[in-house]
Write a protein that binds this DNA or RNA. Structure first.
Length: 485
RNA sequence: GCGGUCAUAGUAUAGCCUGGUUAGUAUUCGGGGUUUCCAACCCUGUGACGCGGGUUCGAAUCCCGCUGACCGCACCA
């Protein structure tokens, strides 16, 4: 399915839509989830908790979205999350100062350097705008963090550009009070904020977006000493090496040094098993090892988990081995002690991060699940039953003859346990089609026979097949069919 | 941020060039009827010119600005 097909579904069926859309000054990069989108997102996160957080005995926190200046001073975001930019006086085009200098003069100036240095070099080497040969204005820093003013004096703080900083900052307390033991995963879901220059494509590039992040704290001396590695050693993952994607088991990946150690391979394996269960087509996925130039400023080893969609390869998860970059910086700036005991050894833990983009995952799940059933003239959203916004539709075949009342009765009995959509009106076929489009895997229909023998028909979304089932067996059936795997 | 294309009901569109009707159509949606297991049919109802300014007796239509969407470039720690 194309991007436009997914967009249309999202708008018509309440998955997502533009924020503040009734006002003309609404800015780009902000989208809202509607009822169907929220329901899908909640279930996606429940699956994430099951497959990663609980499975690996991680613990979860929920931190502030606004954090102090010191946090981002220590994390490096104040200096490194900003691009030095120069603007052409003539054609107004904006360029990265460091890049344009390298292109013309081969002089490498780190992007965190003082602005004077860029200006000086541009003048010395007589660098002009590549588009129109015009002169540049003075270099400026464009920081992608949103600054906010706190209290009446407007003291400076920032909306977090990634959720993980609260995990690092909270680590000493959490490790102590939760009786932590290495390796320890700390997880968090929530919003992050980045002032993107050009947000695009609805959920794919947002200024305000959801992340589900996991930071695993570990003893760097024990990266190949992981008992639980056996759990995923045979799990297949697809890894891009040079231009070729190879499918191999996690064990093969470590043995061949495609992945540097068991520790990293274990978490990539968990991630692959998780995404398999979201219904994303894993044949269209890859882990891509990032080169030095692509990696974030804090990363030693980095793999992106990417999935192929109608708009190209999409990065869904960034997996970064951040080493002790973060704990070290926060320890130095705050004077707090971050080293912990691992057996008899005192270590400053290293961190491996799985930083998941929830919004992009939502889009990908929708795109990979949506199909057109031409034979039956319908669009079907073949979501996994446990992820569907609606588990089951409850329909009366006709409203009269007491069927509506009987239908209401069944609805009341199951509505608290499942996401149920009750519908009495219109042609039955039309109601089935509507349910197909929001991905409801089952529909039960109350007909005249129901009044005689207390059975209903149950219809499967994907096959359109129907069978009769006793009302008394309904709960057991639904419970089994909509359960998380 | 630069360049190109574009902006009319929930969705998809006609009308714009050549200014003047009650802004048309399809579908969706609400109510009613008929049928009774897969978007049928009949009746009925709700629903739109992105925002701001200008020209004009009169603007969805012409002009300017803004905002947004799409596509390329750049950006994506």
């Amino acid at each position: 399915m194309t991007y436009d097909d997914v967009m249309k579904l999202a708008l018509e069926r309440g998955f997502y839509f533009p924020s503040s859309e009734i006002y003309a000054d609404a800015q780009a990069g902000f989208w809202e989830y509607g009822p169907s989108g929220v329901s899908l997102k909640n279930k996606f996160l429940e699956l994430w908790r099951r497959e990663l957080v609980r499975r690996d005995k991680m613990i979860e926190i929920d931190g502030s979205q606004i954090m102090s200046k010191s946090v981002f001073d220590a994390s490096g975001h104040l200096a490194s999350f900003a691009d030095p930019i120069v603007r052409c006086k003539k054609c107004k085009a904006t360029h990265r100062a460091d890049k344009i200098i390298v292109e013309v003069s081969q002089i490498e100036i780190p992007e965190s350097a003082d602005l004077d240095e860029f200006d000086k070099t541009i003048v010395e080497k007589n660098i002009k705008c590549p588009k129109c040969n015009g002169d540049f204005e003075n270099a400026k820093k464009f920081n992608m963090m949103f600054e906010v003013g706190i209290g009446p004096e407007g003291e400076s703080a920032y909306l977090r550009p990634e959720t993980c900083q609260s995990i690092f900052v909270d680590f000493p307390r959490i490790f102590k009070t939760m009786r932590g033991k290495l390796p320890l995963g700390i997880a968090q879901t929530g919003k992050s904020f980045r002032n993107e220059i050009a947000p695009r494509q609805s959920l794919l590039r947002l200024r305000e977006f959801y992340q589900a992040e996991i930071e695993v704290f570990c003893n760097p001396a024990k990266l190949n000493d992981l008992g639980k590695f056996s759990e995923i050693k045979d799990t297949k993952i697809r890894i891009q090496i040079d231009d070729e994607i190879k499918s191999m088991t996690c064990k093969e990946a470590v043995d061949s040094q495609t992945i540097p150690n068991e520790f990293v391979a274990y978490y990539l394996g968990l991630l692959a098993e998780f995404y398999e269960k979201t219904g994303i087509n894993m044949e269209k996925s890859r882990f891509r090892k990032l080169g030095d130039k692509e990696k974030a400023f804090y990363a030693e080893v980095a793999f992106d988990f990417e999935v192929e969609t109608a708009v190209g390869w999409l990065e869904l998860v960034a997996c970064n081995y951040r080493a002790d970059y973060d704990l070290n910086s926060h320890a130095t700036k705050s004077k707090e002690k971050f080293a912990v005991m691992d057996g008899d050894e005192k270590v400053l833990p290293h961190v491996f991060e799985l930083s998941m983009g929830i919004d992009r995952s939502m889009y990908t799940i929708l795109e990979h699940s949506l199909r057109e059933d031409k034979e039956n003239e319908r669009m079907v959203l073949s979501l996994k039953p446990y992820l569907s916004p609606i588990h089951v539709g409850v329909l009366s075949l006709v409203k009269k003859d007491g069927l509506a009342e009987k239908t209401d009765e069944i609805y009341l009995n199951i509505k608290r346990k499942y996401d149920v959509f009750l519908d009495h009106s219109g042609a039955i076929g039309r109601r089935y089609r509507r349910l197909d489009e929001v991905g409801a895997p089952y529909a039960i229909t109350i007909d005249h026979q129901t009044l005689d023998d207390d059975t209903v028909t149950i219809r499967m979304r994907d096959s359109m097949e129907q069978s009769r089932i006793k009302i008394s067996e309904l709960d057991e059936k639904l419970s089994k069919e909509t359960a998380f795997p």
